[in-house]
Every structure is written in structure tokens, then in C-alpha cells.
């Protein structure tokens, strides 16, 4: 992608919804997700204009995951629905809560692999991890998520 504004505008328009959903899965708050995504893409635009970005996708997702990690260092198990949104299904809240009980890097691996669909190499590049570590985080994260969901279901049905 060149630094011309039309190309950048197309890039931003196409990536913004995906990035914002990933940010929401990372932080559980649509307003915060919107704010973090906007700031992240603004940095992508500013740095691309001065020719400092090799791969805008890797740059954008890496920057966004780092921003989510910094903002959500303390794992607050909170889900914030969008203003004016209709009721949210209990299963969704349980899933978000379980996701947010994972360490930020573990959560990032699951979101990038299972929501954004990136391969292990790309996730490794985005999170600065080697392939073995990405695979370990994914395996452990899926197992922990499954355990947490089963515990939540058991608590609900009790």
C-alpha cells in the first residue's frame, strides 16, 4: 500500500470493522474498542504516510493488541454493551467473561487465530512470539476456555 490518501482511505474503511470487533473481544467494551481502533488506525495512517510501515495489516493488529493489553492489564471481568443495544444473551456474556479471565496474550492468540483467522506465522509476527509459543498459547487457551465455560454452565444450572 502506498502512502496516497485514497489507498489509505480504502484500507481504513475495509479494516476498521474487523479491527473494532477484535478489539471488542479483547476488551469487552464497544466504546473502548472504537476508541482503541481509531487511535490504532490513525497511527497506521500517520506512519504509512512517512513510509515507516512495511505490512499495514501486521502493523495494525500488532499495535491494536498491544493497546488492548496496556488498557486492560488488570483483568476486569466486565462486559459493556453498546449504548441503546438490545438485551445481550447470557451465553455471550459468559463467553466474554471466560475470555477475559485469560491472560491478555493468551486471549490475543485466540482472537487472532479463531476470530480473525490468521495463521500461526502471522500471529507470531503480530505478537512477537515464535510458532511453538503461539501453538502452546492456543492449546492452553482453548482448554482453559472450555473449562471456564463448563464451570459457568454448571453454576447457572445449579
Amino acid at each position: 500500500m502506498s502512502g496516497d490518501d485514497d489507498g489509505l482511505r480504502d484500507f481504513v474503511a475495509s479494516r476498521l470493522p474487523h479491527l473494532r470487533r477484535s478489539a471488542f473481544l479483547m476488551c469487552g467494551d464497544w466504546e473502548l474498542a472504537t476508541e482503541l481502533t481509531r487511535a490504532c488506525l490513525a497511527r497506521v495512517v500517520a506512519d504509512t504516510r512517512r513510509g515507516a510501515v512495511a505490512d499495514p495489516d501486521v502493523y495494525a493488529y500488532a499495535d491494536l493488541m498491544e493497546a488492548c493489553r496496556r488498557r486492560n492489564r488488570r483483568r476486569e471481568h466486565v462486559f459493556v454493551a453498546a449504548a441503546g443495544a438490545e438485551g445481550v444473551a447470557a451465553e455471550s456474556i459468559l463467553l466474554l467473561d471466560a475470555l477475559h479471565k485469560l491472560a491478555p496474550r493468551c486471549r490475543a492468540v485466540l482472537v487472532l487465530r479463531h476470530w480473525d483467522g490468521f495463521d500461526v506465522d502471522a500471529v507470531g509476527a503480530m505478537l512477537d512470539l515464535d510458532d511453538e509459543r503461539v501453538a502452546a498459547y492456543e492449546r492452553a487457551g482453548l482448554a482453559a476456555l472450555q473449562k471456564l465455560l463448563l464451570e459457568s454452565e454448571a453454576a447457572l444450572s445449579a
Partner: peptide
């Protein structure tokens, strides 16, 4: 399913620039 109820993007693209 978790992403149901996603708010509109509005003028976020302009805000980015």
C-alpha cells in the same frame, strides 16, 4: 454471537484521518 448488537461505525473513517 458475542458480536451481536455491534454499534454503527458512524463517521469513524473521517475520525481516523
Amino acid at each position: 454471537h458475542v458480536l451481536e448488537g455491534e454499534p454503527d461505525l458512524g463517521d469513524e473513517v473521517d475520525a481516523v484521518f
